[in-house]
Every structure is written in C-alpha cells, then in structure tokens.
Design a protein around this nucleic acid. Structure first.
Length: 493
RNA sequence: GCCGCCUUAGCUCAGGUGGUUAGAGCGCUAGAUUGUGGAUCUAGAGGUCCCCCGUUCAAGUCGGGGAGGCGGUACCA
C-alpha cells in the first residue's frame, strides 16, 4: 500500500447518534423481530417494504423559504434538484403507497412493515438518529374496532417479547377528548392550544404539579432553565387537571369518570364514547386495565392524529450500568390518522396503526439485564500438520453437511496453543484435533472446551494441567459427527 | 437550541498550590511450555495528556475560544 500523508488519513469514527450493532445484539434483535413478526402475522397483516428515502414532500415535509428541508430529517438533492429525505417513520411512506395504489388495494388494507428510520435530533438514552421500527396499520376503515385491535396487538406483542403483566401498559386516550377540553376552556389560539397539549403530555414525567406550572405561568427545572407556560387562568387549569387526574383515580370506575366528564363539548363527548366503545371491545377480548388503560395524559404527535391515540410503556424501573435511573420514554405508539392519505388524493381515507420502537425497546431490555445468553460458537477443526490442511477441511465439511456450525482454523497454525485460545475466545463447544498419532489409527481427538474449563478451575499447576488434558476423547474418524453431537447435546440448555 | 458536568494508553482511571524521561490495573504481544485453553512468572509494545490561541523562563495543570461525550430542559411529524 502506498504511503499516505498522515494528515490526509480519515479518522475512523462514527457520526453521533449512529452505532454499530455487533453479533450478540444483532442476534437478540433478530430474535425480537421474529417474535414481533409472529404476532403481526397472526393478526392477519401482510408484509410491505418501501424504500429508505422518498421525495421530501411525499413524506409530508414541504420546503418553506429555506435552503434545507425541515430540520429533523436528513435530506439530499437528486440530480434534477428535487429534494429527497430519509424516512423518519413508516407511516408517511405507507400513506404514499396507499395513495399511489389506491385503486388496486383490497380495503381495509392491512400491512406490517419493519425497517430503519432516521431522525436528525439530539441523541440520548434510548434515542438514536438511526433506529428500527415495526409497524402494523389498517387503512380504509373508521371502525373503533380497528383502534381497539391495535391496542390488543400492542399488548400481545409486549407479552410475546417476554414482558409479564404489570411490567408494561398500553395507555389510551383520544385526541377528540383533548380538543374538546380546549373547546370547554375556550382556548382557540393555536399556539396556546399546542402549549396546553404539550403540558398535558408531561404528566408522567413531571407529575400533576409540574403540569400545573406548565399550564399556568411556566416552570423552572433543576438545571435552572425556564420553560414558558401556556398562560391559562387558574379556573382553566383546574378544569384541565381535573380531566387529567380522572384516569389516575383507581377508586372510581372508568365509566363513572366518563359521566363526570361529560360536558357541553360535542367533540369531547364523541371522543369519550369512542373510548368507552374501545374499552368494551378489548375488555370482552379478555384484556383488563392492567394491560390497556385509559389515560388522558397520552397526547402523542401533535400533527396528524385525529382520534384514538395510544402508547406502550414499560413500567419497570430502568437503570443504567452505574445504577442510575434512566428515562426511556415510550417504546411504541400509534393512533388514528384519518387525513394522511387525503394529502395525496383529496379523498378522506380513515386509518389507524401502531408502531413499535424496536431499538429503544432493546436498549431498555439491555439496561434491564434481560439480554439473552451468548450464542454457542462454531466447532473449530485445528491444524496440527500444515501439509494435511485439505484433510482438515474435509473434516470441517463433514460437520457442516450434518448441520453443525464448524470452521477450519485459518490463522497461523505454527503455535498449537494459539488455536485453542482462538477456539476459546470464539466460544467453541469443542475442537477437533488430528495429528499423526490419530491419523495412523484412523481417529480424531475431540476436546470439550466447556467441560475442560470447569476442570481447569481445580488445577493450579501448569504441568498437571497439561498432563491431564481434561475433557478430551479419541474417537473413530467415521464417528466424528455423532461424537461431536454428543458434546453439543451435553451443553445444550 | 439552552443550562450543567466531563475529555490523560485499546478499556477503566490516578496525576495537592504550574517544574526533568506522564503513571497504575485490565487488555494486547512475546517467552517460560516447539502436540494442548486456564492459573502463575518474566519481558515488551502502546500517549499530538481532545483541538486552537493566549499567560509564563516553564502548561496535562492557569485563561479564552472551539470540538466531542454525558446529563437535564426544549422540540420531536
């Protein structure tokens, strides 16, 4: 290789918020995806894959008087100077797909999709700039049964991923209820409306008093930073908080709460009766308030939800490696979005969906210490005599064709100890050894590395260690496969 | 974006008030042991002390600016 100017060499580094996913984590992720896919398939959703990037306007991002399309998305320009953006979720591409293929799709259209999405935001714990989502959506029905189904799908998925009842909760609210509240307190200014909704969204994190401050004049946090409030009067604040707290009072049944909250707002009554109907459906399907819970603090994204909204939360305390509590946020969410396809076609197409944040969920599982055990490595066939390397490769192939994960030692075979060290680091269950001694007898030596490691614990002296050669047997070469299988079976757990 | 803390070997971290060749543990490489993992012992490699500017006879240490990381907060379709 040519000498390069040291200063001209690129630095090997990763952009912030992006990460490499190595073997153990990748295997765990694939296992998760299989479980989620199993649930979604069982519910009758069909798979669909769309590209990583789309035209920026198709994603719902327009180009205002700016050089760059909206911050928050990664964008690039095509050779015809049209703006493209990496998708920031899987719902916007779905809306584009449905609009484009509306004539031929069977409605209601039910599809699931899994893939990476990108957001150009500040990364944090459980927040990445590239992460994976797993979505299910039903397009073309306004039935609340579809919304209720999303909630039970979410609950089933969490349980398929190993969460017990009580370790997660699917929280449900309805955008119409929230908008109705705004109507009742007479807030019509859009900016003030948004401020009220954002404040309500923070109930879980800041508690009722924090929300009270944010609804009123504002709140100063522990870092000394001040957040401006929504500026409501104390009467308005009381009404909003009363509604928020409704879901938190476990002594009264939900239906009583709904009665209490009925008011002059037609919107709100509509939203409440939708929630009652949804609850009737998932309760009759066997799901209780421990799994799916009405909670008016659920707001979700402000832009496109039009009816029921829900989110999946882990209720366990998550701690980082130093034992400090970590706030992960919700691991999934969704809701009804009736206007998304209409953006393209002008025709209103009701839709509802659920999106699971696979990366965040996995980060939480890792922090909870619920990571799977390490995978068993391959059987290593060692090289005792270089000139017989073809024979060793044949042994490897014999194992492989019997479905056993195996490989030939491809490093420098000069030092035999190195080969065992390599096998040990790879997590091999056993190695295959054949030197001239074994070859003359038509045998191979199998060394059980897991058994051997246990035996090693009792041995202090190196001489003894070498002479005992723990946990190894010589077997006929023709019995290679069956004998290796015996060792593998011994360590299968 | 705003506020706070942090940045010294591959990793985790020591280095009162500025003062020679910047250290430890773990890891890595080699040997003791040329057909056997672990343990032990020995030796070795590995550093622009995040970057730039300034103060000073002298900066890892002090000042200013910047970058990166972590946490909080805001935003989050």
């Amino acid at each position: 290789m040519a000498k390069t100017n040291k200063d001209a060499r690129p630095k090997a580094r990763l952009p912030k918020g992006l990460r490499d996913i190595e073997a153990a984590e990748l295997r765990a992720q694939n296992a998760m995806l299989d479980k989620i896919r199993g649930v979604y398939e069982r519910y009758g959703f069909e798979p669909l894959e769309t590209p990583a990037f789309e035209y920026t306007d198709a994603l719902g991002k327009f180009l205002p008087d700016r050089d760059r399309p909206n911050e928050g998305v990664f964008s690039l320009q095509d050779e015809d100077e049209q703006w493209l953006s990496l998708r920031y979720d899987l719902t916007a591409p779905l809306a584009r797909y449905v609009a484009q293929n509306f004539q031929t799709l069977t409605k209601p259209f039910r599809r699931y999709a899994v893939g990476r999405v990108w957001r150009n935001e500040k990364p944090g714990p459980g927040r990445f700039r590239e992460f994976m989502q797993f979505d299910a959506d039903t397009v073309g029905t306004d039935s609340v049964a579809a919304d209720a189904e999303m909630c039970i799908l979410a609950a089933d998925t969490m349980e398929a991923l190993g969460f017990e009842r009580g370790e997660y909760v699917i929280k449900v609210s309805n955008r119409n209820v929230l908008d109705g509240t705004l109507e009742v307190i007479g807030v019509t200014d859009r900016r003030q409306q948004l401020a009220v909704l954002r404040a309500m969204d923070k109930l879980d994190r800041l508690g009722i008093e924090g929300v009270r401050e944010l609804l009123g004049p504002g709140r100063r946090d522990e870092s000394g930073d001040f957040t401006r409030g929504a500026g409501l009067t104390s009467e308005q604040v009381t009404i909003v908080l009363h509604q928020l707290e409704a879901a938190y009072d476990e002594k009264t049944t939900f239906d009583n709460k709904v009665q209490e909250n009925l008011s002059s707002s037609r919107l709100r009554n509509e939203g409440l009766s939708e929630l009652v109907e949804m609850r009737r459906i998932y309760t009759s399907a066997g799901y209780d308030d421990g799994q799916i819970l009405i909670n008016f603090g659920v707001v979700r994204g402000l832009e496109y939800y039009t009816g029921p909204v829900f989110e999946a939360d882990i209720t366990l305390d998550v701690k980082d490696e130093k034992g400090r509590p970590v706030r992960f946020g919700s691991v999934g969410g969704g809701g009804r979005y009736d206007d998304l396809v209409a953006r393209f076609t002008g025709q209103k197409v009701p839709a509802t969906g659920f999106s699971l944040g696979v990366s965040r969920l996995q980060a939480a599982l890792t922090a909870l210490g619920r990571t799977g055990s390490a995978a068993v490595g391959p059987v290593i066939v060692t090289v005792m005599e270089k000139e017989h390397i073809a024979d060793y490769q044949k042994l490897v192939q014999t194992l492989r064709s019997s479905g056993i994960r195996a490989e030939l030692y491809l490093g420098n075979p000069k030092k035999f100890g190195k080969q065992l060290e390599y096998a040990d680091k790879r997590g091999s269950p056993c190695v295959v050894i054949q030197g001239s001694d074994e070859r003359e007898k038509g045998e191979v030596t199998l060394k059980d590395l897991i058994e051997g490691a246990k035996a090693a614990a009792a041995i202090k002296d190196n001489k003894e260690w070498k002479e005992t050669r723990p946990a190894q047997v010589s077997v006929k070469e023709s019995d290679l496969v069956s004998e290796v299988r015996k060792i593998l079976a011994r360590h299968k757990s």
